[in-house]
């Protein structure tokens, strides 16, 4: 029952959904999830995994729409120096980089 997010992502894609994979690639300070943590999202609204303690998944899912549409990967920065990040609630004082790619 340990979750294999890549297998879940492959399953969504097999159902005809567009899928994006977000991976934490670098962290600073007190980021709650280490590098390598994954969050996956589909255009049918499926979501699984995490790249933070639930603070930025909404923003990542929003950014994923463009990647699922265009196939273009994105490297996203979240951190306390970024006012937008405060808005999405990364209040832990951490900073992180998230790589977002389409499965397809």
């Amino acid at each position: 029952m340990s979750e294999d997010l890549l297998a879940v992502a492959a399953g969504w894609r097999a159902q005809g959904e567009r899928v994006a994979i977000a991976t934490v690639v670098e962290t600073w300070g007190s980021s709650p999830r280490p590098a390598g943590s994954r969050f996956i999202v589909s255009d049918a609204g499926h979501m699984a995994g995490s790249v933070s303690g639930g603070c930025i998944e909404g923003a990542v899912a929003e950014a994923a729409a463009a990647t699922m549409q265009s196939g273009q990967p994105q490297l996203l920065d979240f951190g306390i120096s970024d006012e937008a990040a405060w808005e999405v609630g990364l209040a832990c004082g951490g900073k992180l980089k998230v790589f977002l790619e389409k499965l397809g």
Binding site: D4, L6, A7, A9, A10, R13, I21, T23, V25, P73, Q74, L75, F99, E101, K102, L103, G104
Partner: peptide, 28 residues
């Protein structure tokens, strides 16, 4: 990630082979 690449990664995992996924940033 292409589906073909994911299949290779999953095949290595199924065979219990240690591998590393190397991704060039930001191009992918």
């Amino acid at each position: 990630m292409t589906p073909e690449f994911l299949a290779r990664l999953q095949a290595a995992q199924a065979a219990k082979r240690p591998v590393a996924l190397c991704t060039q940033l930001p191009g992918g």
